[in-house]
Design a protein around this nucleic acid. Structure first.
Lengths: 345, 345
DNA sequence: ATGAAAGCGCTAACAA
DNA sequence: TTGTTAGCGCTTTCAT
């Protein structure tokens, strides 16, 4: 046991020798490649089992695949992303692929570095969740490695996308609040600095969807957006700003549940009640929103399904890199809970 | 742009040719190795910049390091782990290392597979968070790759450990509740099947700490443990069981915040109030516990610090694999919030 | 201080 | 169907 641990790793050569075949044969068996007899397969498999052989991903990477897929998540603390990831891993469960997560990418700089590092590691494909890089950069990346972009509303020429219909999602919230009798509905947004992708980012589209819906209801004059961040702290700051308005909004639509969480913190701190004094709605329908103590009205964008679709598209693209790019757009639904009600006035 | 994307990746040979030096020289410069003149370093760096060269981790892996560290997390949906991860990445920020997360390891089987996959990918070191593998297996793994184990109370011969003093943490909760006047204090635990590591797992130690503390307070007869899981659903099921007792406990100590969350769901569903009808305490002091709508009393085990220590130890072990193993044990503190109060009786 | 050359473990032409 | 062999891009002796 201890000795074998110290020992040199078992290689394909060891297996070949042990099974009395060539390394090619072993390689073929490993990859289920064409040209192996059942008898040989049997012997090789047995040798592999006896020796406890495992292929070195590093060596494979130099020639072929690594059987590794990378997923970039912008913010691991946001409870929406585990949902997406669950969908990805579920879809990949019975494949040979291993998913590796690259965490913590605040900003374009960090994101570029993270993507580079996944390319350096010869990943067979990558899923980028809500990336902030300019589209040209995404195209560049997709030219190097099969790529699926989640969240961006962009028609990539060589990458596939999966996104939620954020315009519709925002409208669901506004319609719901207006239906309850609200007029002063404010929105907490997440800003975008990179001009080339402003129109593609889900956060920007949610904000625009909010604007459109407000206008549609004849509430153009009531449009009120504070731009902070989709984080708990951002939601907190945003709500603080809104609560300091001369005339307070009666409802707050946070662009993400995690921001809604911060908004609820600020509202509680101000001694106000939800939904008595102010209604709050979020986006993502994270497990947190369903939590009894919160019961947050939120837009469900089926995170697991998004993840599963992304994984499916990625496998398809790995299989055929010349494949036409496809865009999957999912329809959100509204989950009405206890944080929204008719305004008190 | 587009052409370069299609083009073969820039290699060390290209750099060497462009800088008019040998590949050896480039390699040395890259690794800050001994034997390079400032002039050469300058030229090489310039060539690297001009060509946009990036070393292939795959090729490096075959000979040297991959500059990749793997972190295995048992449950990505548990909000405690992002905290630990933040500590890890923060500690590694100014190093050349990239952190990759291996998600979703339910059970010993899946865990072993995940660890194998990290070894296959020649990671330079791995951090295992609350692994459930038998100690012998951890030793085996640590013999292959530098390893730091987080959470397990084991004295590895070749791996380092970082753990919270779970016995003390559990005692903090029981002492607090007893101090408030509670006697019927129940505990929601997470079971362990693998016999060889039962005594090392944080969940088991928390349960044992709870038992000890109860006995110390002369409440041995009130000891009441339900064993479900450290998940939201586990907490929910656990609390349901406890609420169905002929005589209901007046306080519930969930072994993890995420389980406390589920317990709060069940309590709300039963139409009971917290802390009016029943007090609830958690463990981990996740951001969720500090949330205004919850305000959960919880044991703080400084996740970020745990992560930072783990990363520090891992770097040290990578630097010297013969290094004596060290065990870092952190002292937890209790954060008292609104979910615990004197019993109503 | 610098470079030539031998692999690391695997895959894929190409031969047999 | 099977095996021989030439690399993949890098690190590392070992000469110079």
């Amino acid at each position: 046991m201890t000795r074998s641990a110290q020992r040199r790793r078992v290689t394909i050569v060891d297996v070949a020798r042990h099974a009395q075949v060539s390394t090619t044969a072993v390689s073929k068996v490993l990859r289920n490649a064409y040209g192996t007899s059942p008898a040989m397969r049997e012997r090789v498999h047995q040798a592999i089992a006896e020796l406890g052989y495992r292929p070195s991903a590093a060596a494979r990477a130099l020639r072929g695949q690594t059987y590794t897929l990378g997923v970039m998540v912008p913010d691991i603390a946001n409870p929406f992303f585990p949902e997406v990831l669950a969908g990805v891993t579920e879809q990949l469960r019975d494949t040979d692929y291993q998913v590796l997560l690259a965490p913590g990418c605040a900003g374009e700089q960090a994101e570029a570095k993270t993507i580079e590092s996944m390319i350096d590691r010869s990943m067979d494909g990558i899923i980028l969740i809500a990336p902030v890089s300019p589209r040209a950069h995404l195209e560049h990346v997709a030219g190097i490695v099969p790529t699926v972009v989640v969240g961006r509303h962009a028609r990539g020429t060589i990458f596939d996308t999966v996104a939620d219909d954020d315009t519709a999602g925002a409208a669901l919230v506004v319609d719901h609040l207006v239906g309850l009798g609200h007029r002063r509905i404010a929105h907490i947004a997440h800003p975008e600095t990179e001009p080339s992708c402003i129109e593609e980012m889900p956060n920007m589209i949610r904000a625009e969807g909010y604007r459109q819906a407000m206008r549609r209801h004849g509430l153009a004059g009531e449009i009120d957006i504070v731009s902070t961040r989709y984080t708990r702290e951002g939601g907190y700051r945003g709500a603080r700003q809104l609560l300091a308005r001369p005339v307070r909004p009666t409802a707050v639509f946070a662009g993400a549940d995690i921001a809604a969480m911060g908004a609820l913190d600020a509202i509680a701190e101000a001694g106000l009640s939800v939904p008595g004094d102010i209604s709050v709605a979020g986006y993502d329908n994270t497990p947190f929103a369903a939590f009894s103590q919160v019961s947050l009205t939120s837009v469900d964008q089926a995170g697991a399904q998004i993840g599963a679709d992304a994984a499916r598209l990625l496998l398809a693209r790995i299989g055929d890199r010349a494949r036409r790019s496809s865009q999957v757009k999912l329809s959100p639904t509204l989950v009405t809970r206890a944080t929204t009600a008719a305004p008190s006035s």
